[in-house]
């Protein structure tokens, strides 16, 4: 019974990590942009849910409205950041890191000025309160909802990349910018769309986080490092890898936490990732070709 409970806790944690990391797997994994403000886009998504609830009132309706709106808010912030700053430094990852970190601090302060420093609460809808009982095990409905949401986001993103013309464009530019241009694809326009989607996914993750607790201006900082770790461990630019890594890290954290404490578990997870990347620097999943380059 305990094992199943931990299993669920791990999967649930994994799904939160996955939501946080999925957008990064596009912007960082595929485009190679280190966007430290990704967490703040999550925060913006969370506050979007807060504002929507203030306007709409009904918790159920506001949640369903907040998900697409959070996507748009996160996406627009990302688009703005890409168009003003990031596109000037595509080949300078360290500069991007510093600049986006600065942007993250600015966004946190903006949130503090607008919404106040104390955390705020977003009410979960009635149909997500309580838990589902399975074999004497209580599974909180909010956690189940986030699991389902993560699954939907992954499937939607994978389908969009695999089966749509836009997805083909994104994959082409990611794999080989010059060759994509040589095929008539505008890499500039594709970069913008990719960044919009990646940042939008952060917004959705933020909305989901409002179901797990109160939210504050520093919400994003709690997730950004873990999200980067998931993408790196999963293998750069591989959604499959991101999914596996998020699940594995969630499970590892949950089981280690159960037998030790939360901080020790975190340390052990970090150590495991470092060791893993020593053995497999390219991450879990990578593309192989016959060419040397």
């Amino acid at each position: 019974m305990d094992i199943i409970a931990q299993l669920f806790a791990g999967l649930s944690l994994g799904s939160v990590l996955l939501l946080a990391a999925l957008g990064l797997s596009l912007t960082f994994g595929q485009m190679g942009v280190i966007n430290m403000a990704h967490g703040e886009f999550m925060m913006a998504g969370a506050y979007t849910a807060f504002v929507v609830q203030g306007v709409v009132g009904d918790a159920g309706v506001s949640l369903l409205l907040a998900l697409p709106l959070g996507f748009v808010v996160g996406g627009l912030l990302g688009l703005l950041l890409e168009a003003t700053l990031i596109h000037r430094m595509y080949r300078r990852p360290l500069d991007t890191l510093l600049v986006t970190w600065g942007v993250a601090l600015v966004l946190q302060q903006v949130a503090r000025d607008v919404f106040g420093a104390p955390n705020v609460d977003v009410r979960a809808p009635a149909w997500l309160s309580g838990a589902v009982e399975i074999g004497g095990l209580a599974l909180p409905r909010t956690r189940l909802f986030i699991l389902a949401l993560a699954a939907v986001c992954v499937v939607a993103l994978a389908l969009a990349l695999r089966a749509t013309p836009l997805g083909r464009r994104i994959r082409a530019v990611v794999q080989n910018r010059d060759l994509a241009e040589a095929s008539g694809i505008s890499s500039r326009a594709t970069d913008r769309v990719t960044f919009f989607i990646g940042s939008g996914l952060a917004g959705i993750a933020g909305v989901a986080l409002t179901l797990l607790g109160s939210i504050g201006p520093t919400l994003g900082t709690n997730y950004i490092v873990d999200a980067f770790l998931v993408v790196v461990a999963g293998g750069i630019g591989q959604i499959k890898g991101t999914v596996i890594a998020a699940t594995a890290l969630g499970l590892m954290q949950a089981f280690l936490e159960y037998s030790t404490t939360a901080s020790v578990a975190k340390v052990l997870v970090f150590v495991a990732i470092v060791a893993f990347l020593q053995l497999r620097p390219q991450g879990l999943v990578s593309v192989r070709t016959r060419s040397l380059a």
Partner: peptide
């Protein structure tokens, strides 16, 4: 245009 290297989409 045919680039010198990496001139196909390998996947």
């Amino acid at each position: 245009f045919v680039p010198q290297t990496n001139n196909v989409f390998p996947s």
